[in-house]
Design a protein around this nucleic acid. Structure first.
Lengths: 232, 232
DNA sequence: AGGGCTGTGTAAAGGTTGTGCAAAGGCGCA
DNA sequence: TGCGCCTTTGCACAACCTTTACACAGCCCT
């Protein structure tokens, strides 16, 4: 949370009065505020990484707020705080299920909004994604992230897109155990369902392509996940 | 241990009734719950990746909840949800400042707690973090939490998932007695039934793998539980 | 000291769960 | 339509957790 880079909030709220009020308060608290009076505008503003966090009213004139959230989630993991009518538990629970990070009942206390926004941003900044830009070396593997390929002893592997993602995640955590759950989330972008063997297949294929017959490279940690073994 | 790994909640709450209630509810919702009745216990349980998320009451008998949070933050970025008295805005604001991720006013709605915990875990899991846990030493044992393994005089032990959990809990309380009940709850995620010898078996297997013939390491405290002995 | 009672140690059997992998199915894309 | 790739299905198998069974140790009581 650099002091010089202001955090950018996208505020999607149809009530002009409330929106202006909040926008003013947030500005005063050091946020850069972008405003949208309806879902359509909100979505397009969110498109181009123009903000760090979204404050979204559930009641909107055009699209339902939850639908906006759903569409946001289909494309990004942008943190979202919902504004809901006080006491409307349904909206709240559904909101969380669709993927909201937090919610505040209206009429909201601006100080609380700010506190929650800051907590959320702090969390997101702590857990920054690993930067995968430059080429890295793990044992005899070379990762060329920009070209999305991996070399085994200098020879490029013929990996599919998913296989690359899976291997990428394993390598980013080389040496430690990656839970199936997380591997699924990070590489495949969805949750692990109860009888889903997809991941196992990708691992199996990866092992074959890596010439990893004995599972020396990708180690199975039963009941947990997998771990890319680093040479000692 | 089902198809997917359960999330582990550390519940720090002094009110026995409320704690038990919440623990039961969270268990029912698929969490593994570890309980602490005071800040001291809470902090030691939070060591070593023993849990994924913390629920922390602000009002505690020994250390102030905020102080617990502060000490937690000094070491980890473990996600924390605060339980505060309703309407106490000071606690809330200070809580966020010290680094809480969320707060819920008491008396809390368990469904909301679960929803918030899940939102938080989802956020943490999306933002793939690479916080490497440093190895901890207990006598001649080295715990490598991120690799989920334990070394005995430098040599890795071949532990199963459950054995690892059991040992982990014992080590977190090294020197003091862990009740069978609690050990069961924390390591196996369920209650101790009347003629259940499962735990005894895991202890037995652990002892064998530790070369602990004379039960010098894992001491039996008849009628109570077990205790990992620390060398003096 | 001896006899019951309870709690613990551990071997072996049994059942459950998680994983590896081949093969078939399905989906999107050119 | 054909191709590549992701996913599903099915089976085999291995790892593991739990149960069962029996032996024994500690404790209380008489």
């Amino acid at each position: 949370m650099g002091d010089y880079v202001q955090n950018r909030v996208l505020l999607i709220e149809d009530d002009d009065e409330l929106r202006t009020l909040l926008a003013r308060y947030l500005s005063g608290q050091g946020f850069t505020v972008r405003e949208a009076a309806n879902g359509q505008d909100g979505l397009s503003l969110a498109e181009d990484h123009l903000c760090d966090v979204v404050v979204l009213d559930i009641m909107l004139p055009d699209i339902n707020g939850l639908e906006v959230l759903r569409q946001l989630r289909a494309r990004t993991h942008l943190p979202v705080v919902l504004l809901t009518a006080r006491g409307d538990e349904t909206d709240r629970i559904v909101g969380f299920e669709v993927g909201a990070d937090d919610y505040i009942p209206k009429p909201c206390n601006p100080r609380e909004l700010v506190a929650r926004l800051q907590a959320l941003l702090r969390r997101v900044n702590w857990d920054q994604k690993v930067e995968r830009a430059e080429a890295r070396q793990v044992g005899d593997l070379t990762i060329e992230a920009d070209r999305r390929r991996v070399l085994l002893q200098g020879v490029p592997l013929e990996l599919t897109a998913t296989e690359y993602e899976v291997l990428q995640v394993l390598l980013a955590h080389a040496g430690s155990v990656v839970r199936k759950n997380d591997l699924m989330q990070w590489a495949l972008g969805r949750r692990l369902a109860s009888h889903d063997r997809t991941l196992d297949m990708h691992i199996s294929n990866l092992r074959r392509k890596l010439g990893d017959d004995r599972q020396y490279r990708i180690e199975t940690v039963r009941g947990l996940g997998y771990s890319y073994r680093v040479a000692v």
